[in-house]
């Protein structure tokens, strides 16, 4: 599952990144759930600013991690889709 290249991921109102000092890890806080972020998940969320397209985000991460764009696109698309079905990520088109 991946997203259209031109779609723009948006973190919805009421959802925010938070550093949990007790667990020393980043989490995504939503009204009804909390998602633990691994370092890659955190890196993905940091790229989402509500203006950049999925394609731009994937290319940025592929450059940053020196990894194949196809793999990044697939992994990031699947990750964001997982957040969308949990209603903690929106996509503008």
């Amino acid at each position: 599952m991946t997203l259209p290249a031109a779609s723009i991921p948006v973190i919805p109102r009421g959802v925010r990144l938070h550093h949990d000092k007790v667990r020393n890890q980043w989490v995504l806080l939503a009204p009804e759930r909390t998602i633990s972020l691994d370092p890659i998940g955190h890196a993905i969320l940091l790229e989402i600013d509500g203006t950049r397209t999925f394609e731009t985000i994937a290319r940025t991460l592929a450059d940053k991690y020196d990894a194949p764009l196809d793999q990044i696109t697939s992994d990031v698309g699947e990750y964001l889709h997982g957040l969308m079905i949990r209603r903690i990520m929106d996509v503008a088109t």
Binding site: T34, G41, L61, D75, G82
Partner: peptide, 12 residues
């Protein structure tokens, strides 16, 4: 840090 497929893990 190398790329590793991210996993969504919910905190109960």
């Amino acid at each position: 840090m190398a790329w590793k497929k991210p996993i969504i893990r919910e905190i109960e």
